[in-house]
Nucleic acid binder design. Sequence first.
DNA 1: GGCATAACGATAATCGTTATCACTGTGGTG
DNA 2: CACCACAGTGATAACGATTATCGTTATGCC
Lengths: 126, 126
Amino acid sequence: MSKLTTQRQAILDVINSSNRHWDADELTRSLSDAGKPIGIATVYRGLAALEAQGLIHSIQLADKKRYERADKEHHDHMVCTQCGHIEEFSHQTIEQLQQAAAHEKNFKLTGHQLVMFGLCSGCQQE
Amino acid sequence: MSKLTTQRQAILDVINSSNRHWDADELTRSLSDAGKPIGIATVYRGLAALEAQGLIHSIQLADKKRYERADKEHHDHMVCTQCGHIEEFSHQTIEQLQQAAAHEKNFKLTGHQLVMFGLCSGCQQE
DNA sequence: GGCATAACGATAATCGTTATCACTGTGGTG
DNA sequence: CACCACAGTGATAACGATTATCGTTATGCC
């Protein structure tokens, strides 16, 4: 198990302090702005380590990976293709049906990602 | 509406000729091997145009985008994290539940992607 | 035939991410 | 306490997929 160093703790604190979905660059800047400069490579390594330990979660979007706190119940994401806003939702039945589908195909499920794309309520106005 | 040029027709033919999920590089090589050399930039542009016209579909994986024929009924994907094998499955109820979830959040749905990760039956043996 | 326009193809540029490598901090161990 | 092993750090180079650039080419229309 890797160490929870000062830097990794700082990354974790930032992520846990909000419900945002952060990318590596945003985290680097946020920490620098807070007077805790950190190397971008350290951020990437830290994020990988924290995720491996289950302390944070990630979603893989088309261009980049985004990280969020793990201390919430499982959910999936809706991404607004206009403004980038990310809405969360969870649906227990969907999870169950996924399990069933995997079982049917003889697939040993280790993870999944459901992302829905569309326009958030705000962006539908225009 | 963009044109269906010789090159784009060739890309489309390759994709429609199998149930594989192709990336841009594989398509370029396949066409070159078939005696129809094509520029990689042309492949990318062609793929974008073909997808915009609904003639092919794509899935965004962590590292790259893969394209498949569009003349099949809608389905989602299971990706083997060991060998890269892609299995398809469809579940009507899941689609309906997604619609419901989007509606609930006031989200105007334009697309979605559900990818499940795990081990295919072959890779579980080892 | 000539011209406007979209597409092509070679290649440079971009961007997120990973690898490299010299250096640093930490935690045993003798 | 000094030393060593080793994971982590940070600057930066490298990488890989994709996009932009730009001169050239093909196509369709008057």
